[in-house]
Design a protein around this nucleic acid. Sequence first.
DNA 1: ATTAGCACTCAATAGAGGAGAGTGCTAACA
DNA 2: TGTTAGCACTCTCCTCTATTGAGTGCTAAT
Lengths: 341, 341
Amino acid sequence: MTLDERKKRILESIIRDYVETAEPVGSRAMVKKHDLKISAATVRNEMADLEDMGYLEQPHTSAGRIPSESGFRYYVDCMMEKEPPGEREYALLQQLFEQNIEDWEQVILGIAHFLSQMTRYASFVIVPAIKFTEFRSLQLFPLDKGKALLLLVCDMGVIMHRIISIPELISSQDLQAITGMFNQAFRGKRLEEVKRSDLQLIRESLSQRRKIIDNALEAIDNLLQNSRDEKVMVSGALNILNEPEFKDMEKLKRILNVLEEDDSLRQIIPGELGEAVDIKIGRENPLEEIKEMSLVVAGYKSFGELGKIGVIGPVRMEYWKAVGTVETVRDIIEDYLKGLG
Amino acid sequence: MTLDERKKRILESIIRDYVETAEPVGSRAMVKKHDLKISAATVRNEMADLEDMGYLEQPHTSAGRIPSESGFRYYVDCMMEKEPPGEREYALLQQLFEQNIEDWEQVILGIAHFLSQMTRYASFVIVPAIKFTEFRSLQLFPLDKGKALLLLVCDMGVIMHRIISIPELISSQDLQAITGMFNQAFRGKRLEEVKRSDLQLIRESLSQRRKIIDNALEAIDNLLQNSRDEKVMVSGALNILNEPEFKDMEKLKRILNVLEEDDSLRQIIPGELGEAVDIKIGRENPLEEIKEMSLVVAGYKSFGELGKIGVIGPVRMEYWKAVGTVETVRDIIEDYLKGLG
DNA sequence: ATTAGCACTCAATAGAGGAGAGTGCTAACA
DNA sequence: TGTTAGCACTCTCCTCTATTGAGTGCTAAT
């Protein structure tokens, strides 16, 4: 279904006006504003056609037209030109990486912040679980009062620690022996491979130091459990307060609640993502709560896993800007991660 | 300024009704509801008195009365009976501590969550900086490619780490020597005492390994910087969406923004706190943005430092419940921390 | 000191009328 | 045949005007 040039121009004008003002667009006002070289009556005819095709709709008989979700979809698929961030913003983003190279957490936060600042929509960053990093070494440090620090070092700069209990009167040789045992067993394995079954194996082979090993194993299991979860970060959720379509309290509450809860958010975002930026408009979203919102998501490869970034805003979204920004940020992230590996 | 029994009863009835319904309370309806043994006319007279005293006010001539901020203040100071959480909730709270003993972060989050769930207001927890913990030991582990893990262990279970660069060809003896140096210099000191000047001292005394020491010092400095900041956690900010007084978008935005930004929040909360729970009602708050809200805060001692927990809600607050809950949670936290020290 | 009675006030609600923006249709035009 | 001007019509939004009703303050009686 392809539109002739004039219909396209009209559709685009309506979309741009509507996205800007959130008001239905009338034929006369539009002709004036966009300086189209045709009369309002002609535009009305074209609008009627576009409405028949399902790309426009009328809130009521005597109002202007607004783009339907199919209208936005057509625009996004066949007409849209992405609008990446400008020089200055781009520089700002890169700076983010340079400044906080040591602190990946900070970088992630910065990315989310940048996305929401740039687009004025809510943004999210999902960092995949780190189960694919490789185990490097394990250390036990005695602390005081029968406690020890268990330190788990992996590659990719992943380091985790826990405090465990140990018998008060254990020799440092014993401790070293146990440490060696663990290292032997785990060396070179991926974290996801270190399953309970492996842990069980060690437990059996070293029965004389059962207590301390049990504790250590439990701590490790716990750490792995944690690292198996992906991390979700949201920024700028309050931006939706500015959108007139959400002036209704109930709607607002529902949406903010979804954005606040990591689990609901995870459900919203598509599981699989291709190379291209993925766009879900309104009812294309599977979840009831956000059937009035649009989602712009991109996936990034992080140590072989799939991470996701994106923005979430009203259907009346500046898709050109959102897509341009999300895509740019994704590319920068991937470059950065490539540099690390 | 003390009120006679009847005036107190009337004031309390008005406060209870108003807190529940958010509507001005009229004489007739009140008499009926609370089954007071006096006539509406009498109540009207008393109300007029209470209004003269400044404890009540009228939105307009022909509306009922609502409690003024002074009215709430009088109630809170002279009449209120705290209402601590019930058995079940109390048990829930204690469970929180038992389950997550290893992960203080989790506990804090749980506390904030509990507070906001119980009271239905926004809650916050401020965890003081850990500058008063004592340095215990420092370790350097070589990782690959000229990198090492710097591990800083303090008492109270505080552990921090950073990755630093080291020369690729350094012997493990050298590394140990350097580690020993650091440990010597820092042992037993409080983190806040480890100032840049100390770091400078070490730097000079070991000039031959300048590069690695510089890196280590920078990392330590960085870590200390981080740990010097108190942590702020907010939960249930969206609860204010339910309060009818904030149905105005602009007001809502201002308040949510304050709750979202750690720094603004810090400014809101009183710096010094005594034993008792502190209550700030409406305009008693110094900051413009929350002059329409009330604050219930309690301080807790954490390793000699002052932490804070509390809730923030509309002036029309269930103070009895808020105070009871905050106080109970504070006590439990202090008990728990005492057990740790 | 308390209460019943009554006139008065004022916000909230509903309805009516008018203005304005926009449409669809028809007929004229290039 | 595509485009345009003209016009009647539609429908929301705004304003203006009762009307209602909860609540008060005052007065006089108990």
